[in-house]
Design a binder for these strands. Structure first.
Lengths: 360, 360
DNA sequence: CTGAAAGCGCTTACAG
DNA sequence: CTGAAAGCGCTTACAG
């Protein structure tokens, strides 16, 4: 990476002072004009010349110098739990768009990588590499460190409300903003869809028991069932994590209960998220359960994969794009007013597909 | 993001000069010791004291200052085509590990985002935000800009050999290193697996026609078929892109041919990658084709999703972790020696699953 | 082996 | 409205 040898010849960097000299002005003035500062209004012609020269010379500011002087990196970090999950793409896009609108750039991180590598954690969180951090909440082990993180860099938690775990050990009462969608409405929509199809016994293959996000999702299901004069039976509920493997294990646990008890079984399952839904579909096939004939399945989060599964997966989509947007906005608004932002608009949307069908 | 108000109170940054003063040495010495420079050997006790103070004060270097002085950001950018694809996680992990071993940090980018947003492109590529770039090759539209990118920042292309498109408009003969796995061996392995199962007519739902990666994959199939005294019939080959949608369309195109021609059909298909394989499975179900009874399917790239599909998907895994590692190594080796690195070790591994079965 | 000096390229008070 | 000066926090020649 030395730039020597027979490789591509790299241009020498054009500096602000080069632009200034070429335009016949001082560096500070060039800086002000290029950054669109309120002054320099009467410069009219000069202004145009500076812009033209910068363009012609291909001037790009040195971010290190700018960061050092302005104590601002221009970067916002988005740290998600599982980069390979199809779920967070929309959130990322929303965050990126809003960040770009404010001249910020979004960089991505992986929570597991960050937790596994102390040095990476230190560099990313304490190294002032980013001006702010958006972290995905709702994951044990990480929630406990949010207090630590927030003390180092402005932080907004997305997709989860505040958790009791969050005040890190000995951290006092650090509070952080949380931005998340209307989770209960989403699972309520799924449940009402299944009720409409005639299902009266509906189970839940859930995410982590302690996850606040999970609790909200569970609440939506319970509320919908209750209003229909029904309930969520304890034996129809299984906890796990947010992965496809967990969904698979969840269905197996339930199926075993069904063999044992001879006490009937749910005809429909809600999956805590799409990955869990994928796991359920796979395990159901192995158990000889036909979806949707023997078992309807509906999952939280709509992703590209939903319509490529066999059968295609009924889902509810949450406004993740807007969560991303709102998270960046909250971050830029400053940490002076930590608060919970529940995005009730746009409302969750049901996407009925082949995995859910009318009860025979 | 102003740090004021009732939010978490952020520590003031500890500077190198703070550490130096507290340890009773000069800043340069503290710098040398903390960066592990060859000198300062006889300092023994002083050295220990500096490290202790840095630790105690929680010193983290200001990366902006360091970057400005050292003309080095400590960042390597990894730019992939589709962040939501499960395929590139291993490559990313490999790259990250190798980067970390050399005190570099990996940041992720999305090719589409970069192409869509000129400003983002400019900042990331021309803004000296990264010391080097690893970009995923094999995508039309982007290959043509690799020359432009490489002139701004040291670049290594992964997962594709050099393409004729790559010398950007008017760029002269810019050459860039390429690091990619032994693609023909991978598809040969898939093909031989299908041949072993008794299939004699094998089709291919392929990636982009112009992609060099795709050509290598096609070659592996053709070679294996030829050695078995068979061939790839033109009517059993369909091109597309690398997405699940494309796999779905590909199968539909083939199925239409099968209806029309009454000239028989392949009993097995190779999918250009896992996403295409997912699309094939979905479309086959819609077409009433049972996998594997009516049609065997096998795909390039093994991912977490392969064993969660219905049926589980036969795949071949490529050493993507090592590709990531080698790409970083090549990047750090300097641009003086652009070259093609074909990773033949470890060899591709076949993962036989339910989507491929013996011909009835 | 260690320190005093210089400077990376910007932007921000401070003068005019 | 514009320029000369200062300085962000480091690291790298340069002296000693």
């Amino acid at each position: 990476m030395d730039g020597s040898g027979s490789g591509p010849v790299r241009r020498a960097a054009v500096r602000l002072s080069d632009v200034a000299r070429e335009a016949g002005v001082s560096a500070p003035l060039a800086s002000r004009v290029l950054n669109g500062h309120a002054s320099a209004r009467a410069a009219a012609e000069t202004k145009a010349r500076i812009l033209e020269v910068a363009e012609r010379l291909g001037y790009v500011p040195n971010v290190a110098a700018r960061s050092l002087r302005a104590s601002r990196t221009g970067l916002i970090g988005l740290v998600v739990h599982d980069l390979s999950s199809p779920i967070y793409l929309e959130l990322m896009r929303g965050a990126r768009a809003e960040a770009a609108a404010h001249q910020y750039f979004l960089v991505l991180g992986d929570i597991d990588e960050l937790l596994a590598d102390d040095e990476a954690f230190n560099i990313f969180v304490n190294g002032r590499r980013v001006d702010g951090l958006i972290v995905q909440g709702g994951h044990q082990g990480f929630d406990q460190r949010i207090g630590d993180i927030a003390r180092a860099v402005p932080t907004v938690v997305v997709n989860a409300p505040a958790s009791p775990d969050e005040t890190g050990a000995g951290s006092g009462s650090v509070t952080v903003s949380h931005v998340y969608p209307d989770e209960p409405s989403a699972t309520r929509l799924l449940t009402e869809h299944l009720l409409d199809l005639g299902h009266t016994r509906i189970g839940l293959v859930s995410g982590p028991r302690d996850s606040m996000t999970n609790r909200l999702r569970e609440k939506g299901i319970r509320d919908a069932l209750e209003e229909a004069g029904l309930g969520l039976r304890p034996e129809d509920l299984v906890f796990g994590d947010w992965s496809a493997d967990s969904g698979r294990r969840g269905l197996r646990v339930l199926a075993e209960r069904w063999h044992d008890e001879h006490a009937g079984r749910p005809t429909a399952l809600v999956a805590g998220n799409t990955l869990i839904g994928i796991g359920i579909l796979g395990a159901a096939a192995e158990e000889g359960l036909r979806v949707p004939q023997d078992l309807s399945v509906a999952a939280v989060h709509d992703t590209w994969i939903s319509e490529h599964l066999v059968p295609t997966l009924t889902t509810v989509s949450l406004p993740l794009h807007e969560v991303g947007t709102a998270a960046v906005r909250q971050l830029l608004a400053g940490s002076g007013s930590p608060r919970d932002v529940v995005l009730t608009e746009p409302r969750p949307v049901l996407h009925p597909r082949s995995s859910s069908a009318r009860l025979q």
